[in-house]
Design a protein around this nucleic acid. Structure first.
Lengths: 243, 243
DNA sequence: CGTCGCCTAGAACTTAGTTCATGACTACTG
DNA sequence: CAGTAGTCATGAACTAAGTTCTAGGCGACG
């Protein structure tokens, strides 16, 4: 059966030794490659958001039909894998420097955040992707190198990377969901910050006294203030050689 | 048009003054209520996971057809709102105690985590739900009370709650995605911990030296060790009256 | 007793993931 | 040089799910 061809292909992509730079049979005409699929998919996500990422939409960009994709991918999840791999491959990993490991960690996380935000909604895919994707492993290796160079114990470093990855993904997801909703015209119940403050302050005082009083603080955080704050909480608590 | 009835109903549910305990017209026969919809939806998610939560599946549990739901809900997102509201309503909020605010915070987060894990995949909904849902606001009010009682500055408390919520949601999501995949028979490339370690150790040594060496640490974290670790990082860094 | 309004329900429309059978084109082989 | 096999692309079709349309039933109110 030729249908398990992409299935082996996916496994091969996650396999320890990928020789993807030396395809045994060079393409002959203008074949659909994984790279072109990834390009098309990212183009769709960048312009229309992750929700618009359908198989048909991708194939339309490629000028073909839905079935043509399935010779290369297992299913739609596979596309997530490709996309996240591409995004991770763009992350620039610094040479680990024991003196600046905190800033280096922050920088890598910010790179991830910006990649995610460039493609609204992709972080949904990031949270779902298998942890054996080679490119995500590359980023994890880089983060691990930074933290270990900083003197963090391996177990602490491993869990910290996990926490950071989860947080960055969730942050980007929330951000892009919000941004997408604000563009959507038929969601009249989506609120700007001012409306949100007004909403909070109109809450019953007996049940929500603190939310009423601190509505300003709860809705504050322009730019990436909240992101920087959360990363600071996590990173500043990591101590070299600490228990 | 009667079709904007549920739309106003959704807005009303998020409105500051809900009088949901005194319906103006008591139901006459065995009507479909939001409570019954929520019950059915949670039943489906608990037994078959969030992916199986379709409109048809819910109405099948209720013994009716798809269109009957749309007299009560705006769209499927509305069901997320109902579910998350229900889950949040079960959270037991402690009386704020300045002496144990850290443990109280941890406890509320653990309650949220367990609610999410009881319904595999729901945290996807939690990350998407509008921040004006009254029940989620109730939980936030409770957390805010705990942190403020602990002497945390309002701005810090607000952002900390945001970080914690994001992390708890992301953690639960990752956990349930993994659990769901391990049940799925056709995902032969989903790996147990032993297989994952083997996979890591088979990586090329030149590109992934640290992942190879620390495969054990990277894959460790039974129970909620990783959860406790991440929460500890965040909570322990919150200082009463700190800058 | 009639009318109004709300809820229910069945069918249908639309979109999207996925598969099947077919056809074309390349590369090997006698 | 021609035949053959294998790989890849394609269009149509199948299934499932969100959503809407239209009609029907039942209590409340005048």
């Amino acid at each position: 059966m030729s249908s398990d061809q992409p299935r082996r292909g996916r496994a091969a992509r996650h396999a320890p030794q990928p020789a993807d730079t030396a395809p045994p049979t060079p393409p002959r005409k203008a074949p659909i490659t994984l790279d072109r699929i990834t390009d098309a998919a990212l183009h769709v996500v960048a312009t229309e958001g992750y929700d618009a990422l359908t198989v048909r939409r991708i194939t339309h960009v490629l000028g073909t039909g839905p079935s043509s994709l399935y010779a290369h991918i297992v299913n739609k999840d596979d596309i997530d894998d490709l996309i996240i791999g591409r995004l991770c491959s763009r992350i620039v990993l610094p040479e680990p420097d024991p003196a600046t490991w905190r800033d280096q960690t922050r920088d890598v996380c910010a790179q991830l955040r910006d990649q995610y935000l460039m493609y609204p909604g992709v972080s949904r895919a990031a949270l779902a992707v298998i942890p054996t994707n080679l490119e995500t492993l590359r980023v994890n290796e880089g983060l691990l190198a930074i933290l270990l160079a900083g003197g963090i114990r391996p177990q602490t470093a491993a869990w910290a990377i996990d926490s950071l990855s989860l947080y960055v993904g969730a942050y980007a997801l929330e951000r892009s969901l919000l941004a997408q909703r604000q563009k959507d015209p038929d969601h009249e119940w989506v609120l700007s910050r001012e409306e949100l403050v007004a909403r909070f302050e109109a809450l019953p005082a007996d049940r929500f006294p603190r939310i009423r009083r601190h509505a300003a603080e709860l809705t504050s955080g322009a730019g990436h203030d909240r992101f920087d704050f959360a990363l600071g909480l996590i990173i500043d608590n990591l101590q070299p050689d600490g228990s």
